[in-house]
């Protein structure tokens, strides 16, 4: 039987907007994905350690404060340092269009902004994890 995809949803820093991940967690669980929540107010280091410990396929970072570039840079470095940069890294929240390419350069695989379709996210996760 096919193993379900394991996803760590993370909030980094002081941003505590939780509506996006609350809805996402429910919708993705309904679509058969195993969702683990990092807890609030985490450092990138804590998130990467949790990802390693939980052996997830995907790390999903939700950021609505605008601090995504700073957090993701550190997070991607940490993923490389711990040798888990093969895992899929996605970002959601308030991310301006012109930040999408720089995020990808850092190592983010895909950015979903507000209003993203849940089916699209789930479909993306399946194909990305299958290809990884």
């Amino acid at each position: 039987m096919e193993q379900p995809i394991r996803l760590l949803l993370a909030k980094i820093g002081l941003d505590t907007h939780t509506i996006g991940i609350t809805v996402l967690a429910k919708e993705l669980r309904d679509r058969g994905i195993e969702v683990i929540f990092s807890g609030l107010k985490q450092t990138p280091e804590q998130v990467v350690r949790a990802a390693l410990q939980e052996d997830v396929d995907v790390i999903g970072v939700s950021c609505l404060s605008g601090g995504h570039m700073t957090h993701l840079k550190v997070l991607a470095e940490q993923m490389r340092a711990l040798g888990i940069d093969d895992r899929i890294l996605i970002v959601g929240g308030v991310v301006p269009e012109e930040d999408v390419e720089p995020l990808k350069t850092i190592g983010v695989d895909r950015v979903f902004t507000m209003g993203a379709n849940m089916d699209d996210i789930a479909a993306y996760l399946r194909s990305a994890v299958a290809a990884a």
Binding site: D15, K41, S65, G67, H71
Partner: peptide, 10 residues
């Protein structure tokens, strides 16, 4: 250090 990237942002 907890505040990296958030100073003057929101």
């Amino acid at each position: 250090p907890l505040c990296r990237g958030e100073v003057g942002r929101a």
